[in-house]
Write a protein that binds this DNA or RNA. Structure first.
Lengths: 119, 119
DNA sequence: TGTCATACCTCAAACTCATAGGTATCCTCC
DNA sequence: GGAGGATACCTATGAGTTTGAGGTATGACA
């Protein structure tokens, strides 16, 4: 009952994938990421701070991210960047997402053809 | 803290979508669905019985599915079909999946361009 | 002074899904 | 005739993720 084996996380691990992807472009801090995800998806994806901060901590603990505290105009920001371990993880995650998204897409498309044929 | 509002279920509601889709093509029973999902996705998607059966019950309770018990060769099967309510739900779910899958895809693609430009 | 945006954080509860169990019938092979 | 596997249903525990709501503190603006 310990480790998950099947459907490795993609039917609810999108936040992690998105974080690794965005951070692989440039280092960012938590609050910025929350806004960026919302912006880049035109509002379709909206992960709250309660989702992002714990996830950042988890990824750092796991070694996929490293952080550095910055003071900007009296405010303190924690800026994260992807480690080399995280880069590998990102590639693996992207591959898994692709496989799953294609599979789901194919099933939904299959429905189209079915309907077209039977109509 | 009661009802979920954001990210309406698609970062972990794929099993539900797939069930509604497959059942909208033809009525099927639980055990058959478990195999069908595995087959149609070439093994990429694998939802166990412990996922499918409770979900079928939930969808029926909610009014998206109706069931009928069949006896076939001494074995008892519970065959499910999509109700008109379920058909609407399926359309809504498909639309949501599309939006989210496209958003995630766009973010991942964005990464490609970024890299191409900066390299 | 109050309020809003920025910026960090944590916790409780809700939810889903995986794993592992349980029952019972049928078929095949030995 | 018995063992084992496939078929077919089911539930329960628990791991893991995400939501929603809260809390702290600074800076900007009116």
């Amino acid at each position: 009952m310990a480790t998950r084996k099947t459907n490795p996380d993609f039917l609810n691990g999108v936040p992690e994938l998105v974080l690794l992807e965005l951070l692989s472009r440039r280092p960012m801090y938590g609050y910025e990421l929350v806004q960026a995800i919302k912006d880049e998806s035109s509002g379709a994806l909206e992960f709250g701070e309660g989702c992002i901060y714990p996830l950042l901590h988890k990824l750092e603990e796991r070694g996929d991210l490293s952080s550095r505290r910055l003071d900007v105009g009296g405010r303190s920001r924690v800026v994260y960047r992807v480690t080399s371990k995280g880069t590998k993880q990102r590639a693996a995650s992207m591959a898994q997402w692709s496989t799953i998204a294609e599979s789901v897409g194919r099933i939904l498309q299959g429905g189209k053809y079915e309907q077209a044929r039977s109509t």
